[in-house]
Design a binder for these strands. Sequence first.
DNA 1: ATCATATTTCGCCACAAGACGAAATGAAAA
DNA 2: TTTTCATTTCGTCTTGTGGCGAAATATGAT
Lengths: 137, 137
Amino acid sequence: MKETLNTLKILAEESRLRIFMALNDHELCVCQIVVLLGLAASTTSKHLALMYQAGIIDQRKVGRWAYYRVSKTWKQQHRLSEWLVAELADSAKIAADCDRLEKILAMPLDEVCNVVTCPENAAASGFAGDCGENDCC
Amino acid sequence: MKETLNTLKILAEESRLRIFMALNDHELCVCQIVVLLGLAASTTSKHLALMYQAGIIDQRKVGRWAYYRVSKTWKQQHRLSEWLVAELADSAKIAADCDRLEKILAMPLDEVCNVVTCPENAAASGFAGDCGENDCC
DNA sequence: ATCATATTTCGCCACAAGACGAAATGAAAA
DNA sequence: TTTTCATTTCGTCTTGTGGCGAAATATGAT
């Protein structure tokens, strides 16, 4: 029961659920997730650590970059992801995240990292003031 | 997304998950749930209210007694319950709850209410000191 | 009407958790 | 080797939540 409860607790939080949905379709670098969610890097890292420890996501390091994606093994053992995908198929917020993520994926990684480091310069990349302001669901 | 998140939050808490699993198989009165979980009546009532407001459970009043069960409509619209049942099929804690619940269901309701009101007399009903002490999962 | 009883609501407390900035760590570049 | 940079860890603060007992409410019995 403890594991089930832990899994539910992890996914029952908005930022982590959004991370889960993004990593369900893509392997992403921390800096990309930071820009997607508009959170501090430290917060994002902590969320990812929880999900990694729970076995929900896999981690791959490439030099200074850490990439994460939902673990295929976890997906196979937990039909929960299917339920979530179905439940959130109509979610405007998840759809907005997907749109935003397309833009992020089109950016060179060093530009994404620049947005993380210098948010003031984010306007040049089109990401200023877009950080989770709209209250859609 | 808000509704999905709310559902996850509600079920991501141990007491409520145990209540959910019990109400998935039975319609129970508040006092029966109180004895099953070993929580205060006020706490139990608050949990049930959250679940009721979220549409997860139905409520039926019979005089002073309030009965709850998982909503059939909710079950049909949310395959999550199937996943939970499968995930918790091997849970010792849920199995222990089921055993305990058999005993509670075998008791006259006024005797269950007596356990709620006068826990000191619970020994006579075999329910003293059994309140969630073991740490099984 | 009063009393008893089951449940719900309220008020409070202790603990947990998300967020941030700063510091530390690990890898790459110079 | 030193500097730069991406990520992780740490420390702190604020907010949220589960638990309890007391009070309030609703129903039934006398």
